[in-house]
């Protein structure tokens, strides 16, 4: 399948501040891609440019065959955007609002891809059926976000954008949301691009991670791939006769075996720790937040290549 999103040398500048300094990536049909990066790295800017909500300073962007800055209404009908609501449509009910917003997609349906989704079924899917007739103002934060998702996908999009979709979720709502996204990707083959600053979320959802830092993509790989690249040395710690030891080794399994062979049961408090992707990411975030975005990006790039 072909490319759904192509981004070449995308640049964004606000006043004298460069937020994006040359972003390149491709996303293929059916992929679930996570744009991961610290707060302020330019994730929202990037996704808003792709959504057609924001004008870029320079670079080439192609989304579903069109430039989002001049996206047609036909193009709009193929793109879903999950927005974060906070108090819109307070007097509407989820059922009424979904039916109303869904009706805009009717002329765009085809025999093999009818649009919009059936509102009732969608309410069931996102778990909103019990509160389908409650006023939206009375919904809890988690229910509201599920409604956001339902509105984002009511038009049965080919491509779905989600910006920090689980910000403010409790762990339960978060898990349910992840299930929903995976189901959507599996059953509809929807291409999904989401942003997050949470590595764990990226790991759970994404088939591929684009790491954004210092205004560009510093890593583009699966989470396992990234983890694999970053795992070099492993630290082994142990205690022997009241003394502590630590050593960096490349084959921890063999090292431990030899340790036991030599000292037997005298070895205490064995601790084997791999350099993890999480450590590397946390270091990146920390550097970024202390204002060294560029340095952080370079460091991360070196660690992963």
């Amino acid at each position: 399948m072909g490319s759904v999103i192509t981004v070449r040398d995308l640049r964004m500048r606000y006043g004298s501040k460069d937020v994006l300094t040359g972003v390149d990536f491709d996303i293929d049909a059916g992929e679930v891609v996570c744009l991961l990066g610290p707060n302020g790295a330019g994730k929202t800017t990037t996704i808003e440019i792709l959504e057609g909500f924001r004008m870029r300073s320079a670079g080439e962007v192609d989304v579903l065959g069109e430039d989002p800055a001049r996206g047609s209404e036909d193009w709009r009908a193929r793109v879903g955007v999950v927005l974060q609501s906070w108090r819109d449509h307070p007097r509407w009910t989820p059922r009424r609002l979904l039916a109303q917003l869904g009706s805009y997609y009717e002329p765009y349906g085809t025999a093999e891809r009818p649009k919009p989704y059936d509102a009732e079924q969608l309410l069931e899917t996102v778990g909103l059926a019990p509160s389908a007739d409650a006023k939206i103002v009375t919904l809890s934060g988690g229910q509201r976000r599920r409604l956001d998702v339902a509105i984002g996908i009511i038009g049965r999009p080919d491509l779905l954008f989600l910006d920090e979709p689980t910000a403010g979720f409790d762990p339960q709502a978060r898990r349910e949301f992840h299930d929903l996204i995976r189901r959507l990707s599996r059953t509809e083959n929807t291409t999904i691009l989401l942003t997050t600053h949470d590595l764990d979320e990226a790991e759970r959802l994404a088939s591929r991670v684009l790491m954004l830092a210092g205004g560009r993509i510093v890593a583009d790989d699966s989470v396992e791939g990234l983890a694999h690249r970053i795992e070099g040395e492993t630290t082994v710690k142990w205690r022997l006769g009241g003394e502590s030891f630590a050593e960096s080794v490349s084959d921890p399994t063999r090292f431990a075996r030899e340790l036991f062979a030599r000292h037997g049961e005298a070895v205490r408090d064995l601790d084997i720790r791999r350099a993890s992707l999480e450590d590397a990411y946390l270091a990146l975030v920390q550097e970024h937040e202390s204002g060294h975005g560029d340095a952080a990006a370079r460091m991360f790039k070196e660690a992963t290549t």
């Binding site: 927005l83 805009y104 984002g152």
Partner: peptide, 13 residues
């Protein structure tokens, strides 16, 4: 509150 943005994200919204 985002009502307008919701409609911007929809064809002819």
């Amino acid at each position: 509150d985002g009502t307008l943005l919701r409609h911007k994200a929809i064809p002819h919204g």
